[in-house]
Design a protein around this nucleic acid. Sequence first.
DNA 1: ATACTGAAGGTCAGAGAAGGTCAAAGAAAT
DNA 2: ATTTCTTTGACCTTCTCTGACCTTCAGTAT
Lengths: 158, 158
Amino acid sequence: MPNLTDYIEEYLKKLLALSTRSYVEIQRRELAGKFACVPSQINYVLDRRFTLESGYLVESKRGGGGCIRIYRIDLERMSPWREVLNSLNGEGFEPVKVRQFLRKICEDNVISKREARLLGAIIQDECYLVTGMDQVQSRKLQQKLFGEALEEILKDGC
Amino acid sequence: MPNLTDYIEEYLKKLLALSTRSYVEIQRRELAGKFACVPSQINYVLDRRFTLESGYLVESKRGGGGCIRIYRIDLERMSPWREVLNSLNGEGFEPVKVRQFLRKICEDNVISKREARLLGAIIQDECYLVTGMDQVQSRKLQQKLFGEALEEILKDGC
DNA sequence: ATACTGAAGGTCAGAGAAGGTCAAAGAAAT
DNA sequence: ATTTCTTTGACCTTCTCTGACCTTCAGTAT
């Protein structure tokens, strides 16, 4: 017995399938209207059903003329990142390991040397020392920033 | 979903691209007429889309026969570039301004689109919220990380 | 010269139009 | 009975657009 979230998910995935591009653009208010629900329901659906792990990526712009853009990322583009992607949610996000990983995918030409160095800069522990955060917090932030950066890479070429 | 501001921006940039000189001259009143909006809308567009950080310079003359002149700043004329970089590295580190700057050096092919987006990810305020740092601290860290990352990119002899 | 006048452009605060967040209530699953 | 998933609504942030009021300047009348 499908619920609202299921219907909205299905609708959006259909839109994506029909689109010639790798993304679709919607307006939150309008979509909420179509399904007779509150706008924040749309955010819920996006949070739950259009996650990075499941191969989707969401961007938005506020203000007059704002919109939400949903990208579909194909598996090939995702696969080189699988390993590090897993470490982004749970434990096991270790700068040292990530660096090794970066070297590897750089050799595999998934990213450029410059990009590898840029990503490396994000996870330099020394930068975080001055803030007075404890290590747990720093790790969390590194993890978050790295994740965001990764999204930008996956978005690319879409 | 472009809005009025987007259209006016596009129009002006097209004018600039077509111009043989490095600037264009417009009349606020007349331009507002063309887009059926109030004159101050033009100021808004200029404030938001034609800043120094994004590589433009705006001059104006009031009174009878007044006009607005918009210059496109060329990276070759290094001086403004340096100025901006310095201001970014000094006190006034503001992600909004930095983003405009990124857009410009991207347009000028100093960095790739992907790199611009990666650098943009580093300075997203939302990421830093979870850490419980105050804004001053977050800014400092953003600035540090951004600086390191940018260096890694430019090291490479762009 | 001096003062007036009208035609520019500038500023700023407030309304409006998006989308975001979060906690709490309600429903479904285990 | 408890946990997890869904739905809702109040409140927030960002970006855009408008209008009232201000400043500057060229030309003209005194």
